[in-house]
């Protein structure tokens, strides 16, 4: 059995503070989460070949440790969805490689099977190490709901599946999980398992500062992690205690 945290160790050794998307997806897939099938490629031709193996449509994304906000990178060429044929894939991949080359960036391109986001409910699942509380988890509705409504539920991690289920029920948007106006009910349990998994990752590994799956697409049968982010604390290599001291008070 391979060490599930190998990408984390490798990144720490390189002094990096974040994993690439495909590394992050490897880490969460190892915890039982479903991720889209994908391949990392180094040239437009290889991108087309990968897309043909995966089947159209596909998604093309820039893959480089230094690019965390892929959709904002290089004027928006970093993420291209719903690529329906070979020409579209070649164009998208070429744009990414050109933009990377302009920026002196050693980037690959991640080609992934396209997932129909209309066929599910987008949620955000995250875990973060708070200096005061230690590991914590959250779940919220994805997309504009999380940004505008801040419809989220929090717990101190690690959490059980029962607690994670309860978190999903606390959301104002909870009824959406059960189907609404013709949209199908989605797999609440799979969302709960994802909450448990990200909480465990941060709770078990001191060097992991944050794990975020956004969006996690909850579907009628299971949930798939469309994007994943793992941030590291490069100052923590081992699993030692890393608590901050007491500080201050407003009187």
């Amino acid at each position: 059995m391979t060490n599930p945290l190998t990408p984390v160790d490798a990144a720490l050794t390189d002094g990096r503070t974040a994993l690439t998307e495909s590394e992050a997806k490897t880490v969460i897939a190892d915890r039982g989460l479903v991720t889209p099938t994908g391949e990392l490629v180094r040239a437009p031709d290889a991108a087309v070949e990968a897309a043909e193996r995966l089947g159209f449509p596909v998604v093309a994304k820039v893959a480089a440790p230094s690019v965390q906000h892929k959709s904002e990178w290089a004027g928006g060429v970093g993420v291209n969805v719903n690529l329906g044929d070979a020409d579209a894939v070649r164009t998208a991949a070429t744009q990414i490689f050109d933009a990377a080359s302009d920026r002196d960036l050693d980037a690959a391109v991640l080609i992934e099977e396209g997932i129909d986001i209309e066929a599910g409910l987008e949620v955000i699942v995250g875990a973060t190490r708070d200096p005061s509380f230690g590991p914590t988890v959250l779940v919220g509705l994805g997309g504009i709901a999380v940004e505008i409504l801040q419809d989220t539920s929090h717990r101190i991690a690690p959490v059980s599946t029962a607690t994670a289920l309860e978190m999903t029920r606390e959301l104002e948007a909870s009824p959406l999980f059960d189907g609404y106006r013709g949209s199908p009910a989605v797999d609440r349990e799979a969302v709960a398992e994802a909450i448990v998994a990200v909480g465990d990752l941060v709770a078990e590994r001191e060097a992991i500062r944050e794990v975020e799956i956004n969006p996690l697409l909850a579907r009628p049968d299971g949930a798939v992690a469309l994007d994943a982010l793992v941030s590291l604390d490069s100052e923590v290599h081992g699993d030692g205690d890393h608590r901050s001291g007491r500080r201050q008070n407003r009187s």
């Binding site: 965390q68 955000i124 995250g126 875990a127 973060t128 708070d130 005061s132 509380f133 914590t136 959250l138 919220g140 999380v146 940004e147 801040q150 989220t152 539920s153 929090h154 717990r155 101190i156 607690t163 944050e210 794990v211 975020e212 956004n214 982010l229 941030s231």
Partner: peptide
């Protein structure tokens, strides 16, 4: 606020959740 998770995780929410959990 490097991520939504960071931006959305306020102390108040964690205390409320933590007190309930504990």
């Amino acid at each position: 606020a490097e991520s939504h998770t960071g931006a959305l995780t306020g102390r108040y929410e964690l205390y409320e959740a933590g007190f309930a959990q504990y």
